[in-house]
Every structure is written in C-alpha cells, then in structure tokens.
C-alpha cells in the first residue's frame, strides 16, 4: 500500500489543512466541535467535494475518482446507518450487495465478520433489539465487510459506555495489527486521542499540531502548573519578573510549563503568600498541547476564542459551520 497524502486548500470550515497518514496506522483527528473535523471527514469519504485542494487516498483523488476510492475505503458514520428493522445478517447482506459481493462468498464473509465483532449468535435478530454497543459493532462490521484497506470512523464512540468504548478501540488495534488496515478516527475526546499512533489537532479549520501523542506532549517542558488567583494578570507579571519564566493567562488561570514542577510550586507559594488560591500540577496532557498551540482551552466557546484568534492569526476567519443535520 502506498502512503496516503491528504491535501486541502481553502475552505471556510477548513483553512488549508494538510497531513499524511501512514499505512497501517491508527491516526486520530482531534478537534473541538466546529473545528472542521466533520467537514474533513465528509471530504475524505467522498460525500463532499472540497472547494480547493485535494484529498488523495491510496492514490485516488476523493473528488475526481470517487467510485474507485469508495471500493477501497470503509466508512463508519457517527449517525446510525444500520437499518433497525433488518436483522444483523440482513444488514450485512444489504451492505455486501452494495459493494458487489454476493452468493456463498458473501454469506461466508458475513459469518466471519459477525464472529469478529462478537455478534455471531445474534445474526438473526433485528438490530432494534441490540444495545448501543452492539449496534456500533454492527456499524463497524458494515464498514469492514468488503475488506477495505482504509477505514474512516467519525466519532465512533459517541453514546457508548466506557466498557463498549474500550472494546471498540481494542477492535481498531486488532485491525491495524492483524489486517494492516489504516484507521482514521475523528474524536473530540482527549483520552481517545491518546490511544492513536499519531494524530492531528484541528482548530478552526487549521492543523495546530501533528505528531504522536508522546511527541506532542514532550514539547511541553516538564510539568504543567496551573494557579488560581484573584488577579491572574498581576500574578503572572510578578512571576515573570521574579522567576524569569514564561507564564500564560488562560481563562483566569495562570499557566506555567516548567521542569521539576513540584519544586517550583514550593518556591511560588513561598514567594507570593496569600495570593494563590489553588495550585495544580500535572504531567502535560493533549489538552495542554492544545492550549499551548491555540491560546485557549479545548472547550471554549468558539465565539470567545475568535477574538483571541484574530490577534494571533493574520486572518480573523470565523469558524466554519460544520453543516451537521
């Protein structure tokens, strides 16, 4: 399999997004709502034609050569695509026919894939009797039925309990390792992004970070210290002059990235008695990476953040509407 190259040009929702995904890797697309994840997903899955730029998957251009590409990718949507009135096997039979599979070969493949997602004993039951986790697994089976080399999943764990979530990720890893399937997952959950081999972080239609979770977190030297105080700007200024260290004020909290954070905290508390209401210290998370790159928290309302963005980026693009229905 060849390397996959994705390129995008301008778009209100996606503003020049470029990245590459390697074969047989679990690749994450992390971003808050409105960051352009879904738009990107629609372009990759051939549902939408990008205004400019191109998406190359397995050498096929998603905009120009959709029929060839559709044969080779599997897509699992966030919305439910299985028919609840049909049984598990019937759903897959239908899906198989859409992909040109038929007869005994299709029957065999259905049995195989149902066993793989652990639904073999429920094959003849209607999907409406299934639990949320089972329905998701059936969705996954649908996406995998024709043996795609690339699997695209849009927020696959939405609405699943933690157990079912874990199971799903387990399946994705097995797929990657045993069948060398390239898996591209969109998510807005940090802990899911942590499980990817590599990921991009999207914010307002731009790539703000790209790398393995460890790499990204390593950029932040040492620990992340967050201080709560009544007057963050003043405290941040004081720390800056007294300790010659970078400080940031993010939503009323002072953030400092520093090695040997625990020792620094003692110094801080001694230096400014009574000014610090609360202290937290932690190893950097992907959210810290996001904050570092964008200057705001992951879950900030985009309206609030655009004000800051305008200062940062030369164009004050409003975040594109993702066009969900």
């Amino acid at each position: 399999m060849r390397d996959i190259v994705h390129r995008y040009g301008e778009r209100a929702a996606l503003n020049g997004v470029s990245f590459e995904v390697r074969p047989a890797e679990l690749f994450g697309l992390l971003g808050p709502n409105g960051s352009g994840k879904t738009t990107l997903f629609r372009i990759l899955s051939t549902l939408m034609v990008p205004v400019a730029g191109r998406a190359l998957i397995l050498g096929h251009n998603a905009a120009e050569d959709p029929s060839q590409l559709r044969r080779e990718i599997g897509v699992v949507f966030q919305a439910q695509s299985i028919d609840l009135k049909l049984t598990a096997a019937e759903n897959l039979m239908h899906q198989g026919h859409l992909y040109g599979l038929r007869g005994a070969a299709l029957k065999k493949r259905i049995a195989e894939i149902l066993a793989r997602v652990g639904l073999a004993d429920r094959a003849k039951e209607k999907a409406e009797t299934f639990s949320g986790g089972m329905q998701r697994r059936l969705e996954l089976a649908k996406g995998l039925l024709h043996g795609p080399k690339v699997l695209l999943l849009d927020e696959p764990t939405t609405g699943l309990d933690p157990g079912a979530r874990r199971d799903l990720w387990q399946y994705l890893r097995i797929l990657r390792d045993e069948e060398r399937v390239t898996v591209l997952v969109t998510t807005h959950l940090m802990e899911e992004a942590e499980r990817c081999d590599r990921l991009v972080i999207l914010n307002e239609g731009r790539v703000v970070a790209l790398g393995t979770p460890t790499e990204l977190k390593r950029e932040i030297g040492g620990d992340v210290i967050v201080l709560e105080t009544k007057d963050p700007e003043r405290l941040a200024g004081k720390i800056r002059t007294q300790f010659r260290t970078d400080t940031n004020v993010v939503e009323g909290q002072v953030r400092i990235e520093r090695e040997h954070g625990h020792r620094f905290v003692t110094d801080l508390v001694e230096a400014f008695p009574g000014e610090i209401d609360a202290v937290s210290i932690a190893k950097p998370s992907l959210e810290d990476v996001f904050i570092r790159r964008t200057g705001h928290r992951f879950w900030t309302e985009s309206e609030e953040s655009t004000a800051k963005e305008t200062l940062r980026l030369r164009s004050g693009q409003t975040p594109g509407h993702e066009g969900k229905h």
Binding site: T46, L47, R70, F77, I82, Y99
Partner: peptide, 10 residues
Amino acid sequence: GFLLSVLVAP
C-alpha cells in the same frame, strides 16, 4: 446515517 452509507458505497 443510512443514506450516507449508501452514498459512500461504490
């Protein structure tokens, strides 16, 4: 999502 899954099929 049913229609979506048909639309992405070849």
